[in-house]
Amino acid sequence: MKKNILLLLLLAASIVGAKAQIYMAKNGEISFHSDSPLEDIDGKSKTIMSLFNTSSRDMMFTAKIKSFDFKDQLMKEHFNENYLESDKFPDATYKGKVNETIDFTKDGAYPVTTTGKMNIHGVERDITEKGTLTISGGGKNILIHCEMMVRLADYKIEIPKLVVTNIAEVIAVKVDIPFVPYVKEEKK
């Protein structure tokens, strides 16, 4: 009987212990580079909203298409109007999970993989990507870094024949998200 109660207490304690430890980043960076014979196109956003649950290892981010900046404004307009159609699809999102079990209290750099659903231009795809997860400050800071190749055709982003030499078919995308523990904001 006493044993059972002890078990129950342990169980309860483990639930409390496993209570979601949520990390957040509002200033994640996503940049991309298109390399083509005629011109190089670079876009970058520094306001990627991202969340990470270290107990379930669920991870997600939302990138506002309009937050991407370019070297000239015309590129930005074309990016929004003609390619990503940000009026219809304002966000690119990722919802996934880090596959490896990691001790998030131990500093170090861990090679990881993540599997989940990427949604760009209204097209959702299952992807698995490799990256690095760096823990520092005794688990206070978690940095996720990932480099991937995105094929525009996979997300139904069409390139008209006239500008086919200006835009690469496969775009190199770099993701850097510096997570810190999420603190619930006091409602004023």
């Binding site: 639930i15 949520i22 649950n53 107990s55 669920d58």
Partner: peptide, 30 residues
């Protein structure tokens, strides 16, 4: 326990919604 992981992602999604909703209006382009 069995439902915890699913619930965790739902909570995360909800939090994401809250956080991204707060973003203020952007200029209309084109």
């Amino acid at each position: 326990f069995a439902f915890a992981p699913a619930k965790a992602q739902d909570d995360l999604s909800k939090l994401m919604e809250e956080q991204t909703k707060a973003v203020k209006g952007e200029p209309v382009i084109a």
